[in-house]
């Protein structure tokens, strides 16, 4: 057994980048109310469709991955907000009623 934390998304993302993948990294920056994952939680995605980690209980990962693919193309970071007050809530909101803000950047 190794000593790498299960949640060490950065290491996984960096290894993907080293292998020539195009990678975006999403990080939870703030949460309000009952959100499932704390600030600092990360998710990495690649243009080839790989995914590691999580930024919620699975409610917003799809939308975050979509934003990640865009950031991989443009290089422009994005800040996303999800929650009941958000218009997109009916599509990809948090069932728990919390709010979460996520920063998406291109890695490498």
């Amino acid at each position: 057994m190794n000593t790498v934390e299960i949640e060490d998304v950065l290491t996984v993302a960096a290894s993907w980048a080293r292998a020539g993948e195009r990678v975006a990294l999403a990080t939870v920056t703030q949460t309000w109310g009952s959100s499932p994952r704390p600030a600092g939680s990360q998710m990495a995605i690649t243009s080839s469709g790989k995914m590691a980690g999580s930024v919620s209980g699975g409610c917003i990962e799809g939308a975050v991955a979509e934003a990640g693919l865009k950031t991989i193309e443009t290089g422009i970071p994005a800040e996303l907000q999800f929650g009941v007050t958000n218009e997109r809530a009916w599509e990809v909101g948090l069932a728990c009623g919390g709010q979460v803000r996520v920063f998406v950047e291109r890695l490498g």
Binding site: V28, T29, A39, G40, F103
Partner: peptide, 16 residues
């Protein structure tokens, strides 16, 4: 040992 967003002057910073 806590990731957080902090207002520093007029700027917002994320510290990991």
């Amino acid at each position: 040992d806590a990731t957080r967003e902090v207002a520093v002057g007029s700027e917002r910073w994320l510290f990991q």
